[in-house]
């Protein structure tokens, strides 16, 4: 498949020979596939199962590479390198290193689900993209995305109290993502809310921030949810290994131009 061979002609895979003679013929110059070995040894045969173990990835094995997801995709229309079909192929073949090259693209899926309604086999590519983004996070290839952080803040509160308190969600989210609370748009929003909302509601919101109310008799529900989450996490640990924290790549050494 041509898409496979592309990696062999990337600049880093081209070798330059100043003085190469084969069978008495001078063949010095830039060489790629002729010289580099074609054997690909780093297939991860578990990759499809790993993605399938994450919520949304269940149906990845159905894909028959028709391209409907890619050609209907909102993001692909802007950036042709955003290609769900291709990534599904890489995952199914276990071509992990190739997949990881696109780690900064995959999460850009906007969940519009155009792919989902185009897919003739009901792979639900949108959900596969989500699963893949989570896989990248879990394996430490990408930073936790803001949306993952938001989900965490939100569900922590719901699970703890059976309720959320909007102000607190926003504050914790801003806090954990390192954003300032003094952003002009946020200040403006709060100002208008104070102006527009009935006094009684504002009072209730204010009290809620201080007293953190719980849903009545929430305890057993919370315990059940926590048990379930623990179970699921254990399953994921078993299939994917424990989460790996993200480590920012070493900054590339500054090139000193040769004399």
């Amino acid at each position: 498949m041509p898409i496979h061979e592309k990696n062999l002609i990337r600049p880093e895979n081209i070798s330059t020979h100043d003085n190469l003679v084969m069978d008495g013929v001078d063949v010095s110059g830039d060489w790629s596939t002729f010289i580099k070995t074609r054997v690909v040894a780093d297939y991860n045969e578990e990759l499809q199962d790993e993605i399938a173990a994450l919520p949304g990835g269940e149906y990845i094995h159905r894909c028959w590479q028709c391209g409907s997801c890619t050609n209907s995709c909102t993001i692909n229309a802007i950036n042709p390198d955003f290609n769900p079909r291709y990534w599904i192929y890489l995952i199914r073949m276990g071509f992990e290193s190739e997949l990881v090259r696109d780690k900064d693209l995959i999460w850009q899926c906007v969940s519009c689900n155009k792919c989902t309604s185009a897919c003739p086999r009901d792979v639900v590519p949108e959900a596969v993209m989500k699963a893949t983004a989570h896989w990248l996070e879990r394996k430490g290839y990408t930073k936790k995305s803001s949306s993952t952080v938001f989900d965490e803040v939100f569900s922590e509160q719901v699970i703890e109290r059976g309720k959320i308190e909007d102000g607190e969600v926003v504050m914790s989210f801003f806090n954990r993502t390192g954003q300032k609370l003094t952003q002009p748009w946020l200040i403006e929003m709060v100002k208008r809310m104070i102006k527009g909302l009935p006094v009684q509601m504002l009072t209730m919101m204010g009290l809620a921030t201080v007293f953190k109310p719980k849903t009545r008799n929430w305890g057993p529900a919370r315990d059940a949810i926590n048990d379930y989450i623990e179970e699921q996490e254990a399953l994921l640990d078993e299939k994917l290994g424990p989460s790996v924290p993200y480590k920012a790549p070493e900054p590339a050494p500054t090139q000193i131009p040769a004399e």
């Binding site: 498949m1 041509p2 898409i3 590479q65 028709c66 391209g67 409907s68 890619t70 050609n71 209907s72 692909n76 290609n83 079909r85 185009a118 003739p120």
Partner: peptide, 21 residues
């Protein structure tokens, strides 16, 4: 390729898709 959509410019019909190979 499986086609995404067929549109028209008023004369031609335009086929949009991904050449998967």
């Amino acid at each position: 390729a499986r086609i995404a959509e067929v549109t028209s410019d008023g004369d031609k019909v335009i086929v949009k898709g991904e050449d998967t190979l």
